[in-house]
């Protein structure tokens, strides 16, 4: 089955600059619809409206961090299997392994390049679809 087209992405990132760059990278360049939230709490409030096909999470955030947010999202029946991607400045391979074990479809190291972020996301999406 050719992968369903990715359109709606939910991003949780506490830093406003990165949210803005990501909007630019994913909306203007990637052509996706991005809902960018500043906290896990906000993500949980907006997820129903955004209905994301893919979720991008910063790992380290004040309050609810990325893994905690993912856990909360996974407890919602509609999003139990939605592919999730972690973004992190720490990329030691054992940590990456840990995120993948949490059920992440991929890990994007920070800093990311705004011009290729959309490609990275698309690759992860295609792969996630291929694996099903």
């Amino acid at each position: 089955m050719p992968p369903e087209n990715l359109k709606r992405i939910l991003m949780v990132e506490d830093e406003p600059d990165i949210r803005t760059v990501a909007e630019l990278a994913l909306e203007a360049i990637g052509g996706y619809e991005l809902t960018a939230c500043e906290s896990g709490q906000q993500a949980l409030e907006q997820i129903g409206e955004c209905r994301p096909q893919l979720i991008v999470l910063d790992v380290m955030m004040p309050g609810m961090d990325g893994p905690a947010t993912l856990k909360a999202i996974r407890s919602l029946p509609d999003y139990a299997n939605t592919p999730a991607v972690f973004m992190t400045a720490k990329v030691q391979s054992d940590e990456v392994q840990g995120y993948l074990e949490l059920g992440a479809a991929g890990v994007i190291p920070k800093p990311f390049d705004p011009l290729t972020l959309a490609d990275q996301i698309r690759d992860i999406w295609n792969e996630a679809c291929a694996i099903g």
């Binding site: 830093e15 600059d17 990165i18 760059v21 380290m60 004040p62 992190t88 400045a89 920070k110 800093p111």
Partner: peptide
């Protein structure tokens, strides 16, 4: 520490690669 971590993650994306790398080291 949190600020350095943030810079390590974001500065490169905004075009300040050296700042990001240095922040990472200090972090």
């Amino acid at each position: 520490y949190q600020l350095l971590h943030r810079l390590a993650g974001s500065a490169g994306t905004l075009g300040f690669t050296q700042l990001g790398e240095q922040a990472r080291k200090l972090e």
